[in-house]
């Protein structure tokens, strides 16, 4: 049994009154692709900055590859690759100059580590003389990843790498991460996109500095205990409100162009269809679906609120 790559023990961090990270503990095994999933402002970036030694936790302990994030930050900085949320590239330098610069400050060269980045870099190499500021979001992302990888880090921290990137590039990006994972690099990635969670080995759902759940994506989904359906009608605007007034309703949330509706118990479609027709909806489509991570996330949030309310009573 090898020791874990990242170990976080009851770490907290506040900015004034706001608790950005509240007593979080988690463990990431070597070679894992670990997802930190949560909406904006959940505390993902703060946790990343603590793990990359950029911030000191108020309390708690954390280790990355055996290096304490506070006392051993110098050694830690040598073995980690970090890609901050806003692809920190030099916009006035060309693609190649950016990569060469990051290689130099880590005491290596593009040539030495070309193997590791080849698959990624080859896609942006045709634009190597273009200024980084003139690249598309997807290309910036690939360049930033190449820069974070150029010194062969043992652990890779990617803070919201897919934000502001088109769907095709996002898919490509996750494929790249899978390839990197096969090379033995531990990867911790944060994202606000719940659909990306399914691609991780383990995910931690995080909200307002608290962890809601940590598990494999499959297990998280299997914990979802309500019947779930996707509903579309001609009046999407009022639909969630109407659905919540349905007897035995558990939740109704807008998901893209449809509403995900769950009930406390199994129920018959005609009853629901009649209910919606009586509310004036037409072209009603109801389809039973399997829950995805976002459904689970919402369920966890509701649970939290209920518990919180119960505790208060």
């Amino acid at each position: 049994m090898s020791s874990p790559s990242i170990r976080v023990e009851s770490v907290s961090k506040s900015y004034g009154e706001t608790k950005a990270v509240n007593n979080i503990s988690l463990t990431v095994e070597k070679g894992e692709l670990y997802g930190l999933i949560g909406p904006d402002g959940a505390g993902k970036t703060t946790l990343f900055r603590m793990l990359t030694s950029l911030l000191v936790p108020d309390s708690g302990k954390a280790e990355v590859e055996g290096f304490d994030i506070v006392n051993d930050y110098k050694n830690l900085r040598r073995i980690l690759g970090y890609m901050p949320g806003r692809f920190s590239l030099y916009h006035d330098l060309t693609v190649e100059e950016n990569l060469a610069f990051f290689a130099t400050i880590f005491g290596t060269t593009i040539k030495d580590n070309y193997d590791l980045i080849r698959d990624i870099y080859i896609q942006i190499e045709p634009f190597k003389n273009r200024k980084a500021g003139k690249l598309s979001g997807g290309m910036k992302q690939k360049l930033a990843l190449s820069c974070a990888l150029i010194h062969k880090p043992e652990v890779l921290f990617l803070d919201e790498p897919t934000t502001g990137v088109d769907a095709v590039s996002r898919k490509e990006f996750w494929e790249m991460l899978k390839t990197l994972q096969k090379k033995g690099i531990t990867i911790m990635v944060s994202t606000p996109y719940m659909d990306e969670a399914a691609l991780c080995d383990h995910v931690a759902l995080i909200q307002k500095g608290n962890i809601l759940s940590i598990d494999t994506p499959e297990k998280i989904r299997s914990q979802y205990k309500f019947p779930l359906m996707r509903i579309r009608t001609d009046n999407m605007y009022i639909l969630p409100v109407d659905l919540r007034s349905f007897p035995g309703s558990e939740s109704a949330y807008r998901f893209g162009d449809s509403v995900h509706f769950s009930t406390k118990e199994e129920l018959q479609h005609p009853g629901l269809r009649n209910f919606l027709e009586s509310k004036g909806h037409h072209q009603i489509e109801i389809e039973k679906i399997e829950p995805d991570i976002e459904d689970c996330f919402m369920a966890f949030l509701r649970n939290e609120k209920r518990e919180w309310r119960n505790n208060r009573l």
């Binding site: 806003r86 030099y90 990051f102 400050i105």
Partner: peptide
């Protein structure tokens, strides 16, 4: 401002 300071700090520089 550009966020590159984060990466510089994390580097061995």
């Amino acid at each position: 401002e550009m966020g590159t300071m984060e990466v510089l700090l994390v580097s061995p520089l």
